[in-house]
Computed example of a mutant assay.
Amino acid sequence: MRFHAITDVPGIARVARYYADVWETTLDVLSTETLHCVRHAGGATIGAFDGDELVGATTGLFCPDGSVYSMIAAARPGVGHPLKLAQREWAAGLGARSMRWTYDPLVARNARFNLVKLGAVVTEYTVDFYGPMNDGVNTGESDRLTVRWDLTGSREPHEPEPRGEVTATAPDGEPLRRTDGERIWCRVPRDIVQVRKDSPDQADEWRVAVRAVFVDAFADGYVATSMSRDGWYGLERR
């Protein structure tokens, strides 16, 4: 496996097509023109290659505050972690001390990757971040969590078991929110993509329910620091 920044227009166009394929849309997720402008402005699109095959890509911008904003990332299973480390190496080479990006709060596997595998922290919940979306992966309102990844050290992930009083019920009739008075736990579906295919209405109910937990928790000074294997976010005070 090799990783390198893509700087030529044909290569950038290939990445644009790759992003569209991953998001199962004929529309541009990020166009060739946009990706080339990002590169020209000092950002980078880093590709992951298995031989000549493009198996992952991520695009980031260097920000005025000295951080990197990761705009998008997609990869074949098993490639995401080394690809993110390659982006981290690029960012550190510019002197960046942290990296930020957003993701869908209902996608448990992404949450576990971000919070447990990388050791990042969720610091913000934004309602309908992009406005309504309609591609092969996303439909309806686009709530997003913002992740902050410290590039100067490593946070030891911990995964305390959900405990305490059940204070809210999920759309599937099972517990949604638990608290022991100090920590808060919030559950999401194990596979929201499948829920969206099987029952779009229930998927909307999940979004609204999880939104309520996170918005209130962040307003009270919490951040999300863990995701269990069975779909429970762990939130604790800053």
Rank of each mutant, 00 (worst) to 15 (best):
G140R: 02
V208Q: 15
A86M: 09
V68F: 02
R14W: 02
V213Y: 08
T167E: 00
T58Y: 11
R144K: 09
E53C: 12
Q202T: 10
G140P: 01
T179D: 00
H40Q: 14
M99Y: 08
V15L: 04
G56H: 08
G153L: 12
R211M: 10
G56M: 02
N110Y: 06
L94I: 09
A20C: 07
G60E: 05
C63H: 15
R14L: 05
E33W: 09
D28N: 12
L30N: 09
A111C: 04
P105A: 04
R177Y: 00
W90C: 05
L83K: 11
P175F: 03
D65P: 08
I12V: 07
S199A: 14
I72A: 07
G56D: 00
G173W: 06
L176M: 07
D180S: 09
P77S: 00
H4P: 00
H36M: 10
W206A: 03
E205N: 06
V213E: 13
T25L: 04
L61P: 01
W101L: 04
T225R: 14
Y222D: 05
R238W: 13
F62A: 15
D150A: 10
M71R: 12
A217W: 11
M1A: 13
A91C: 04
R14C: 09
W23F: 08
E205Y: 02
Y222Q: 06
L83P: 11
W232A: 04
R17P: 01
R14S: 10
R196G: 15
E165S: 12
V116F: 08
A57R: 00
D104V: 03
F3G: 02
R17Q: 10
G95I: 01
D21C: 03
S226A: 15
T26G: 14
W149Y: 10
R39N: 10
E174K: 15
W23V: 00
A75V: 00
A120I: 03
D65L: 02
I46T: 05
V9T: 13
F129Q: 05
G234T: 14
F218H: 12
N114A: 02
T45V: 14
F49Y: 15
P10K: 02
W90N: 06
S67K: 07
D135T: 01
E124P: 00
G231T: 02
A73C: 12
P171R: 13
G78S: 03
D216I: 03
W149D: 07
R112N: 11
A168F: 13
K84N: 04
R17D: 13
A120K: 05
G119C: 07
R207L: 01
R76K: 06
G231P: 05
P10F: 07
T139E: 15
W101I: 03
Y125V: 03
P171F: 11
D180A: 10
D150V: 11
T26D: 10
W149V: 05
L85N: 12
T26F: 08
R100P: 07
I192Y: 02
Y103N: 06
C63K: 15
M133F: 06
R97P: 00
G60V: 05
H4T: 07
G221E: 04
